[in-house]
């Protein structure tokens, strides 16, 4: 266990290192940060002065060295635009994005598993065929189109749903603002969550269905039937747990990808989260913030995958996390 965690921390460090190098190597092509920061009237001399103070005139290697030394002390730089430490900026935006991802994951889990299982058990049922057909359409429609369609229908035409923002949030644990504890907050998160889940949901229905079909044709399911078990325990105990193994593996990667997808969803719904922040940071050439964000998302990927591997190890007794062969 400890060996596994040490391995993971080392891997994460390597991933972070590669990501930071990558971010730094592209910053030159992102444009001049002083253009956004300074007033139009600023003279070239003042501008150069500013560049010199910010260390932008140093060579890339020197800048990178400075960045790494600071990062190791927990300082990921100061955002050019917000004029505060980038980590603080990200952490301020984190609750909004995290809650959006949690809401979307909740939708995906509660809808895809029952639907996928049903489609596997009764592949010829009209509802299964309908679900499969709809899921193909769902996969092919991009997120922003789903989001715009929903805004047009439910916000503009029917006026049922708010079309942008987080609405009223409640502060919990000091700084965490949540959407889930007020009706206004809840109604604001519904459409963004549906939009965010719309691309993954069909994928997961199909994945659950395919895995379940495979498990159902296995010998141990046949043996469970031969033991005299009725359909309920055969499907929900013997088959479902085995179905979940590959679904968990894929799900772990997809949650990370979903954090990335929030960029689209958040910009359509003006959701004040990390994705929206990132898009603005790119427009403003806010390099420290861009770098910090990308590294943060990389960290989320590594952490989520580690958690998924731990969960997998708990469910599947044949897996040894350290990699011993049994």
């Amino acid at each position: 266990m400890i060996q596994f965690l040490i391995k993971r921390v080392l891997q994460a460090a390597l991933v972070m290192f590669i990501i930071s190098m990558f971010c730094f190597s592209i910053q030159d092509s992102l444009g001049d940060p002083t253009r956004e920061m300074a007033a139009m009237s600023m003279s070239d001399a003042e501008r150069d002065n500013l560049r010199e103070r910010m260390g932008l005139n140093d060579s890339l290697l020197v800048q990178y060295g400075r960045f790494v030394t600071r990062a190791l002390k927990g300082d990921l730089g100061t955002s050019y635009f917000f004029k505060e430490p980038t980590l603080d900026v990200i952490l301020k935006k984190l609750p909004a994005t995290l809650e959006l991802v949690i809401a979307a994951s909740f939708l995906i889990i509660t809808i895809s598993i029952p639907l996928g299982v049903f489609c596997a058990i009764k592949p010829r049922h009209w509802f299964s065929r309908f679900t499969m057909a709809v899921s193909v359409i769902g996969i092919s429609i991009p997120v922003f189109l789903t989001a715009l369609g929903m805004i047009f229908l439910f916000s503009v035409t029917l006026r049922w749903m708010p079309s942008f923002g987080r609405g009223e949030t409640v502060q919990v644990w000091g700084s965490w603002s949540t959407n889930f504890l007020s009706w206004d907050g809840f109604i604001h998160i519904v459409m963004p969550a549906i939009a965010l889940s719309s691309i993954m949901l069909p994928l997961f229905i199909r994945l659950v269905r395919a895995e379940m079909l495979e498990v159902l044709s296995s010998e141990y399911v046949k043996f469970a039937r031969a033991k005299g078990l009725s359909d309920g325990p055969v499907y929900l105990k013997h088959a479902l747990k085995n179905t979940m193994l590959p679904v968990i593996t894929v799900g772990g990667v997809q949650i990370g990808i979903m954090v990335a997808y929030t960029i689209l969803t958040e910009s359509v719904f003006q959701w004040p989260g990390m994705g929206f922040m990132f898009l603005e940071a790119v427009n403003r050439s806010d390099i420290p913030l861009i770098t910090a964000y990308i590294m943060f998302v990389g960290l989320v990927f590594v952490v989520v995958n580690t958690l998924v591997d731990l969960l997998y190890g708990i469910i599947n007794p044949m897996v040894d996390l350290v990699g011993r062969r049994q």
């Binding site: 010998e219 046949k222 043996f223 033991k227 013997h238 085995n242 044949m318």
Partner: peptide
Amino acid sequence: GFIFQDPMTSLNPLF
């Protein structure tokens, strides 16, 4: 009662 061919696959590995 049933006994199947392959004892490696007739028991559910997760229980």
